[in-house]
């Protein structure tokens, strides 16, 4: 089963739609609650990142034999130092996002922690692609 979503830039009202739909799809397939929770968190953090940092992007989620593969692509400004971006608590989100409950610097680490495979590729000025796999 393939799911596709577009995430709008700075549009928080839509951020979370992909994770909610993924959650419902996994639930219908009888996947356990802990795995659903991990997939939902990884996806939601990814959506929020795209909305805050990249002006939106595209998400593709494929639920297949024993695994969920999520690919998040954006054409945002890219990440100059991925190591730093992966550090818990390190954030470049503008303060206004903290008033919305985000920008704790936990997004990418949260995504990685909840996945069995996590790959991130980023080029400054071109964009970022994150590929996450969760074994189910």
């Amino acid at each position: 089963m393939k799911l596709r979503f577009e995430v709008g830039g700075e549009d928080f009202s839509l951020a979370g739609r992909a994770s909610s739909e993924l959650k419902r799809a996994l639930s219908r397939l009888g996947v356990g609650p802990e795995l659903i929770r991990r997939a939902s968190i990884a996806m939601y953090e990814g959506e929020i990142n795209m909305a805050i940092h990249a002006g939106g992007g595209d998400i593709e989620a494929e639920i297949g034999e024993g695994r969920v593969v999520m690919v998040l692509r954006d054409e945002g400004p890219g990440i100059p130092d991925i190591g730093l971006a992966m550090t818990e608590g390190w954030s470049t989100a503008p303060d206004r996002y903290r008033e919305l409950g985000f920008g704790a610097g936990m997004g990418l680490p949260n995504m990685k922690r909840n996945c069995d495979e996590f790959e991130i590729e980023s080029a400054v000025g071109k964009g970022t692609t994150v590929r996450m796999v969760i074994n189910i």
Partner: peptide, 15 residues
């Protein structure tokens, strides 16, 4: 203290 839809969305995702 966060009263917005994201608080509900997060709570829902976390069961």
């Amino acid at each position: 203290g966060l009263v917005n839809p994201q608080a509900i969305r997060t709570a829902d995702l976390m069961d």
